[in-house]
Amino acid sequence: MSISRRSLLNASLAFTASTAISPGLSRASTLVAREIISSTRLFVSQCIAGSTVSATFVDGIAAGLYHSNGQLSPPALTPVVSGSTFGQVVSDLEGARGSTVFALLSGEDAVLVNEGLRVVGAKVVSYGTHNANAHRFVTGSFCAGVGGIFASSLEAGVGNCTIDEICLGRVSAAPPRLVQSGSEWPFRLGYVLARSMSGGSSDVPASVLQEGWYRFPFDTDLVSVVSKI
């Protein structure tokens, strides 16, 4: 049976990272180290593949993982078309078993990927919904707070941005936090999510923010997922 729909891109970040904390980083949130990341996979929706928003998210993940282990080079996105049916989405996720999965998805694809993660019995560390003005995270056991860490990481001075987090493992939810930034969120999100998974500071070193295009004010509505399958 062939069901045509917009596809996901499934790209493998072909490298490994450790939980080491880069000595060059300081201040702000120190994350609770989670399980060691031995391999990572990246899923990006077809409709944003190759766009600035997905490229900066991927760069953010690469930088986050790199700063967890200075020996690693930032990975290249090697797109592999897949996911033309829900069965293929599940198959892709099955293929990522044993990996930490980072995903940046359209709202449409996020629905399918969430269902796929349920089918394969994945652990979902963070499920974030994003746009330029607001970010909302749902987390399970990770009550150190991806949302709070992300808020801390955002740079001041580029407009208002609300960050909210619902943690299933916390009795009461923290109130939404307002920070002064709407830009750079894909890069910083990628960075924070990668660092969250490997433990360490979430401060983004100035050296990785030299490129002007990181400061482009993205207005795309997207969903991020971090999962261990």
């Binding site: 969430n114 349920r118 979902v124 560390v125 499920y127 749902v138 056991s141 619902i166 299933l168 939810a173």
Partner: peptide
């Protein structure tokens, strides 16, 4: 044992809703 889930991270996909109320 594998078919009874109490791990909060594995509960997240079951808690993800779209209606206008908080997941909790």
């Amino acid at each position: 044992a594998d078919n009874v889930i109490v791990d909060l991270d594995r509960l997240v996909p079951y808690a993800k809703i779209m209606i206008p109320e908080d997941e909790k």
